[in-house]
Design a protein around this nucleic acid. Structure first.
Lengths: 173, 173
DNA sequence: TATTGTTATACTCTATAACTATA
DNA sequence: TATAGTTATAGAGTATAACAATA
């Protein structure tokens, strides 16, 4: 469980001035005490999220896709015939902010807006052939590089448990 | 484990125009298929992080502290005698961006910058009495409202396991 | 010369109001 | 009137370069 009782260091006072610290980790500049920060779930959650997104970007760099863009392509593939509002809402993206995002994907010919014949206010979103091809390649990179690395670090069982708990928080918290 | 097999919906056609939908959850607009998004760790990580930060803000609203500000106060309390660069680096905040953040805390009399006598370039950061008092109250709110809710949702053992895995990712990924 | 705190700046995300064209 | 897509805009958060004071 790695409880990390972090032997109390009691720095800061620097009471004895004559004490010549051995050139350990970093002369006098030792690592700081995280204190109850190590017990704050939100803190580790944020730091972990940044790392994971960073790795995602690195792994999928050849395709120039952000996590958000990847999620849009995935959703379009699984949900043909949906309009902008539906896709944006599902991903927690505000409609106004989704416009520029779609512009980016559409200008790269990864998806297209099609004016609906039923309701001519709305745009049906579809993946282009290129979009489907890029998505397929992206999925392979994500699985073989990104998720594989996480699996390696945590082990399959832990990774599944982690995913389950995160989904629970996202759904019910 | 909550596998969520989410019965296939197959919406999108909306063929019959005369169909007057009963005012159910949302007329014809059924929930979308998340597809492999539910297996993407980064996606749930992000959504969970947003929820947790939201709840943190809500719980600690009476004290008007963001998660980032709380982490600074915690760190100052546990690490007296440190300068801006050391605190910012530890929290992953860039030094230029830390300036405005400190300005905010200092203007509220929660902490103070003290010119170091050893190295007159650097500012030693200290909590004020008010800062210590606010931190104490914040810790109580976080523990009794925020973290307690997470504990309730996941159970203590799962919560500990989650924290451990997130810390592992933040540290080693 | 190098480092600390700082300013300026820019780019991304996110959030809200209001417009247009359709319904 | 209400809704879909859009524009404009404002605010966070984050990133880099460069400057003054100090070492």
């Amino acid at each position: 469980m790695t409880v990390s009782k972090t032997a109390a260091v009691d720095a800061g006072k620097a009471a004895r001035p004559g004490r010549k610290e051995p050139v350990e980790a970093a002369a006098e500049g030792t690592a700081l005490q995280m204190g109850e920060l190590s017990e704050l779930l939100g803190y580790s959650l944020k730091r972990a999220q940044l790392k994971v997104f960073d790795d995602f970007l690195r792994c999928v760099a050849p395709l120039q896709l952000t996590p958000a863009q990847f999620s849009v392509l995935l959703l379009l593939d699984k949900n043909p015939g949906r309009n902008q509002t539906e896709i944006a809402n599902t991903l927690g993206i505000l409609r106004p902010n989704f416009v520029a995002m779609l512009d980016g994907l559409e200008s790269r010919d990864l998806c297209a807006r099609i004016r609906s014949t039923n309701d001519r206010r709305s745009h049906i979103l579809v993946l282009t052939d290129k979009g489907r091809a890029v998505l397929t390649r992206a999925k392979k990179l994500v699985a073989s590089k990104h998720e594989a690395r996480l699996n390696e670090l945590l082990g399959p069982a832990n990774r599944a448990a982690l995913l389950d708990m995160l989904a629970t928080i996202a759904r019910e918290f």
